[in-house]
């Protein structure tokens, strides 16, 4: 029961993207199709879990004045591993995501969880926080990606729902659509979900 409550907190009332607005850059950039959004979400989840685990394991032997270098090195190593795995097994998604997989290194969600959470809490709590926040991030990306793909190209997961001659809102898969949809989603979360906290 507690697990379900924690996960639903990560998805709704403590959503990392819509409530605390961490990781804005990837959630705007990769959500023009649902496939890209899921790929980015899974990559971030893997990096978040492993970096939290490593940093909270070695938090006692990291010197105070070397924290930023070591944390960035740990995250950078895991990002490189995820990048190589994506390059081998999912070359198409990796090509579409482009520079945004290496940019996970300075994703503010990963950085803030590493600096403000894993350096202060034990291994189990850090792991749980990583999984919950990663699932919340995937949920936000899937929500934005499905709205934008449905309106912008009339399809879901590249399966077309309209006929070939139909006109769709091109605005939503262009960069301006990302900003506008994201702005309205944050306003929706603020109005309907955050006020009950």
């Amino acid at each position: 029961m507690k697990v379900i409550r924690n996960i639903s907190h990560g998805l709704f009332k403590g959503n990392p993207v819509f409530i605390t607005t961490l990781g804005i850059c990837p959630s705007l950039a990769v959500t023009d199709s649902l496939t890209k959004a899921i790929g980015m979400g899974v990559a971030t989840l893997c990096v978040l879990i492993f970096s939290n685990l490593t940093i909270s394991t070695f938090k006692r032997i990291i010197p105070e004045n070397m924290q930023s270098v070591i944390v960035l090195l740990v995250i950078g190593t895991y990002v490189s591993i995820v990048d190589l795995i994506f390059k081998i097994y999912f070359p198409l998604i990796n090509e579409q995501l482009g520079i945004y997989i290496p940019l996970i290194v300075i994703n503010s969600l990963v950085l803030s969880k590493a600096f403000l959470y894993s350096l202060k809490n034990d291994i189990g709590r850090s792991l749980a926080e990583g999984i919950i926040m990663g699932l919340g991030f995937i949920f936000a990306l899937v929500l934005l990606g499905s709205i934008r793909e449905l309106l912008g190209s009339g399809s879901i997961l590249n399966y077309s729902l309209v006929n070939d001659h139909a006109r769709t809102f091109l605005f939503f898969i262009l960069p301006p659509g990302a900003f506008v949809v994201f702005g309205f989603m944050i306003a929706f979360y603020k109005h309907y979900i955050k006020r009950n906290v």
């Binding site: 605005f171 301006p176 900003f179 506008v180 702005g183 929706f188």
Partner: peptide, 17 residues
């Protein structure tokens, strides 16, 4: 609900357009 970040995001969206 629109104050702060949401209205800034919509503004920058129109700027991008």
């Amino acid at each position: 609900a629109m104050q702060g970040l949401p209205i800034s995001l919509i503004t920058i969206g129109l700027l991008a357009l």
